[in-house]
């Protein structure tokens, strides 16, 4: 029963996320690159995606985390680590470089599978290889 409930929540959360990515323009790599092109032809539109998402998450997470347990699961599982280490810095730096090269980060890249183009498949395969190697580091 627990697994049934968490599955329904997972599916619903995924649908909302996919709708959000497509509606906001986050799956448009030209737009993402335009957002990162601060010193060129800067397109500020996507800043509104992050700002409005944070407007939802910051206040709601504050109250949700005061609960003892989530509604459909046994416990909260959120990262406890609060140290800034080299892995975080180096990983985030490489992630940003890859993100700017094409304009895809993991969410929009997976969502773009619906566009049925091999480019997405190449990107995702390389992404999972990258994850598997980083997992050994």
């Amino acid at each position: 029963m627990l697994q049934f409930k968490t599955s329904i929540v997972g599916l619903s959360s995924g649908v909302l996320f996919g709708l959000g990515l497509a509606v906001s323009g986050m799956t448009d790599t030209q737009k993402v690159k335009g957002f990162l092109d601060v010193f060129g032809n800067w397109d500020i539109t996507l800043a509104f995606v992050m700002a409005s998402a944070l407007l939802i998450t910051i206040p709601s997470f504050y109250f949700i985390q005061k609960r003892k347990a989530p509604l459909c699961n046994l416990e909260f599982s959120v990262p406890k680590n609060n140290k800034t280490d080299n892995k975080l810095i180096f990983g985030a730096a490489l992630f940003g470089i890859g993100w700017g090269m094409v304009g895809w980060c993991p969410g929009p890249a997976i969502a773009s599978l619906v566009y049925l183009d091999l480019t997405v498949v190449y990107f995702l395969l390389a992404m999972f290889v990258g994850m598997a190697i980083a997992n050994k580091v």
Binding site: K5, T6, V9, G10, S12, S13, G14, L16, F17, L19, G20, L21, A22, V23, S24, G25, M26, T45, L46, A47, F48, V49, M50, A51, S52, A53, L54, L55, I56, T57, S60, F61, I64, Q65, A69, P70, L71, C72, N73, L74, E75, F76, S77, V78
Partner: peptide, 22 residues
């Protein structure tokens, strides 16, 4: 559209944390 999309993404994160704790 960016604002509406961002709200949808925020709500997605909200329900995943509130219901599944993830």
């Amino acid at each position: 559209m960016a604002v509406v999309g961002g709200i949808l993404i925020g709500l997605s994160a909200l329900i995943l944390l509130l219901f599944n704790g993830r």
